[in-house]
Structure formats: C-alpha cells, structure tokens
C-alpha cells in the first residue's frame, strides 16, 4: 500500500502548466519548452527540494536564464524554430475546450505578437499569478518597469483584438 508520495509531484501538478507556458514563451518552440522546464525544475528541486516547498519564482528565473543560454548556443536552429512556432499557436498551450472561442483565439494570437519583454510580464502576472514585486525579482527589473510593460501589453491587446468579435462566447 502506498502511504506517501514525493512532494514534487503535487508541486508540479500545481505549477507545471504555468511554468510550461512560460517556458514555451521563452523558447518559442514546444519541444524545447519541455526540455527547458525539465532542466530548470530538476536543477532547482535538487537544490531546494528537501525543504518540501520551492518558490515558483526560482523555477521561472531558472527557465529564463536557461533560455538565454540556449538561445546563444542555438542560433543555427533559428529558422527551424520560427517554422515550428507558426505550426503551434499559443492556444495549443491551453485547455482545448477554449479553442472554439473565436475571441479567445484572437486574444492569444495577439498575446503571441506582443514584444517578448511585454509578453513575459503578462504571462507571469496573469497565469503565473505573481505580484509585480515577485515579477521584478524574477526578471531582475525595477518594479515600475514591470508595471509599465504590463500596462502596455494590456493596451496593445485591447487595440489589436477586432471589435467585431468582441462579443464572442464569454469565458468562465
């Protein structure tokens, strides 16, 4: 009879989806996103996992740093990455039931077109459920810069989503 299970499984169940979304955004390549998350998570859990709880911010930060390292060494794969990125839209990282909504599709397409520095702040704030203070620590940026980028991102989304599909199916 199994009386106990590793804590990381519960932790990964709670944060894995959000981290994978962030990794995808950082890598712009779904297969790389999983590798990126795995590498970052394993490194952080080996350092701090014995405490039983790890701040998600540490893993987000590790993902970002790794992505930068990998981008520097993977220039040759740039063309391939861009091609695959077109084949797998951001909406594929969310629950399938939502894909039917035209407005959601439009919103996510706009999220994907955001400048990277705005997109990462938006992802951490909305889906990472982090405060501006936590985001500023994760991205190593001043808090005001983070807040501005977030606001600009929302404004761009508002301006880019066509008004004619604004009254599409409402989300939960």
């Amino acid at each position: 009879m199994n009386l106990s299970e590793p804590i990381w499984k519960d932790w990964f169940g709670r944060h894995g989806g959000k981290l994978l979304l962030f990794a995808r955004q950082q890598s712009r390549f779904p297969d790389d996103a999983e590798d990126l998350l795995q590498e970052a998570f394993v490194r952080i859990w080996r350092l701090y996992g014995h405490t039983g709880e790890v701040a998600p911010g540490l893993v987000y930060r590790a993902i970002r740093r790794l992505a930068i390292d990998w981008a520097r060494s993977l220039d040759r794969r740039k063309i391939r990455e861009e091609k695959v990125s077109l084949d797998s839209p951001l909406s594929s990282s969310f629950d399938r039931s939502l894909e039917k909504s035209e407005r959601v599709q439009a919103l996510l397409r706009s999220v994907e077109k955001l400048p990277k520095e705005q997109g990462e702040v938006l992802t951490l704030k909305i889906w990472g459920e982090m405060t501006f203070e936590e985001i500023s620590r994760t991205l190593e940026l001043p808090q005001n810069t983070v807040a501005s980028r977030y606001r600009y991102a929302l404004q761009k989304l508002r301006d880019s989503v066509p008004r004619e599909i604004e009254d599409g199916p409402f989300l939960k």
């Binding site: 979304l21 999983e34 996992g49 405490t51 969310f94």
Partner: peptide, 29 residues
C-alpha cells in the same frame, strides 16, 4: 484561460531526471 497541465509522459520524464532528489521530501497520504 487555464494553461494545460503537463502530460503524464512529460511528468514521467521529469521523475526520471530527478532521480534520488525526487524522493528526498515525501508527503504522507
């Protein structure tokens, strides 16, 4: 919008990569 959870296959990969470090902290059920 809810981000999709990692697939079971991916979780298995992570478990394998974690190795011994994965069982340092256990939760009693």
């Amino acid at each position: 919008l809810t981000p999709r959870k990692p697939s079971p296959e991916f979780s298995e990969r992570v478990e394998e990569a974690l190795g011994e470090a994965g069982s340092v902290a256990m939760k009693h059920l």
